[in-house]
């Protein structure tokens, strides 16, 4: 029996690990889509159940939501810019673009919370009707994802400042950018189905 030993090729292993992780994270995003699909189907079924309360047509201020949408879309773009900078291994630029993305994300979240706050102040909280429960839950779940995205972004920036653009930081950046773009994709449908359809009373 011949016994030969070989040693590990760490680079190859790392590249394979990155491929695995990216794909695994992608599958997670797909499952998250199904989660949102569940919330969308609840919204679709309950959105007419206003129980004497206001409907989407009465509540939504479209220009405000348009600004929100544009802010999130821009943040998705700046996140892409950060990835381009990462590809050039330009840490300062990555940090700068991520900083812009973070601020835009925070703006979006602030706008959403203020919208929620005003509705609750007007007596239209999630307790008001089936429609409002499903509205707050659907949009709020997206907001919760944004919150986690922001936290993740901040942590990644700290890692990057401490460790530099290491292979593992780059991997995390790739996943983070996927997550952030994904949240914008979900927002397309929230914008269309909840806000645009809603304000036309569909």
């Amino acid at each position: 029996m011949s016994e030969v030993t070989t040693t590990l090729n760490m680079h190859q292993i790392e590249a394979r690990a990155t491929e695995k992780t990216t794909f695994g994270f992608w599958v997670y995003l797909m499952t998250d889509c199904v989660l949102f699909a569940g919330l969308f189907s609840v919204y679709a079924v309950l959105h007419g159940n206003t129980f004497g309360g206001p409907s989407g047509h009465d509540l939504f201020k479209l220009p405000y939501v348009l600004v929100e949408t544009m802010v999130l879309l821009t943040s998705s773009f700046t996140c892409g810019m950060a990835m381009l900078a990462a590809q050039r291994r330009d840490r300062t630029q990555v940090l700068a673009w991520l900083g812009v993305t973070f601020l835009l994300g925070l703006t979006f979240l602030g706008m959403e919370l203020s919208e929620f706050h005003n509705m609750v102040l007007d007596g239209n909280s999630w307790r008001r009707s089936g429609f409002l429960s499903s509205y707050f839950t659907l949009v709020g779940t997206h907001g919760l994802h944004i919150t986690f995205g922001l936290l993740w972004m901040a942590v990644t920036c700290v890692f990057m400042i401490k460790k530099g653009l290491t292979e593992s930081v780059l991997k995390r950046l790739t996943l983070l950018s996927l997550f952030w773009h994904f949240l914008d994709v979900i927002w397309i449908f929230i914008f269309t189905i909840v806000y645009l359809f809603g304000s036309r009373g569909i």
Binding site: E14, A15, T18, T22, L84, A86, K171
Partner: peptide, 14 residues
């Protein structure tokens, strides 16, 4: 040579 995910055949482009 080992290439990482970021530098695959289609680099991200502006």
């Amino acid at each position: 040579p080992v290439i990482s995910e970021h530098e695959t055949a289609h680099p991200l482009s502006l």
